[in-house]
Amino acid sequence: MLLREVEYARPASVQEALRLLGEHDGARALAGGQTLINVMKARVASPDVLVDLHDLQELRGIELGADGTLDLGAMTTYADVIDSAEVRARPILAEVCAQIADVQVRNRGTIGGNVCSNDPTNHLPPLLVAIGATMTILGADGERSVPAADFFLGVYMTAAGPGELLTKISVPPGKHDGFASVPIGRDGTCIVNVAASLNGEARLAIGCVDAVPVLVKLEATDEEAIRQAVHAANLDPPADVHASADYRRHLAQVLSVRAVAQARKGS
């Protein structure tokens, strides 16, 4: 429960946030804190400086572009997503956000925090990979865009490097998405989760089986083809107290079939 000593800053602008992140080696951005503060409580992480993004209004909000692209600010909370009318352009987003943890966490936790912490059991990394989201990263050298499939680099590591901020997640329009998971209990941590998207190309992204979501592109979407494609991905999942590697490999196939089935129906 008891954090190590830390310094705290609450910048009023993104530029100031970037400056603070750049100036302090041990600085970390604090979004909703629903992961970071917990790991600090365990003293597993001990940043020297927390740069609280709370006041950065430019990182909040959801906009629906004329071409149907959704731009979601990184500091948008899960609750904002769930309540948003614009997000109905890509219904799977709200549907999955509603499955994350509980009311309190959804009220404070942010989509940017979710993907930047990249806990392999998180919901959003596989979802954003499957639906072909684009991540906008801002650094001292300016802004760049990274496809979600290239954003996740390792456990707790993403393309948003030191001194950089994820500012925006852009999602193309689409209705044919699915998400299937086996959590511990009704709404606990995921043992395996799979997101599927059948908008144009057929894409699966499997979570909890590697440090980053595993993207599987499907040639065909019948059950046998899905199972074979997942099999061909040669998953090497971790074993832990909740699941053996074999069980995860098995669930990856079963849940892939289910996620695709949901996607086919359209959400």
Binding site: G33, I37, V105, R108
Partner: peptide
């Protein structure tokens, strides 16, 4: 007005 868990927030926030 927003329900939160006060163990996942700093007092300074």
């Amino acid at each position: 007005g927003v329900l939160v868990k006060s163990c996942m927030m700093l007092a300074i926030q």
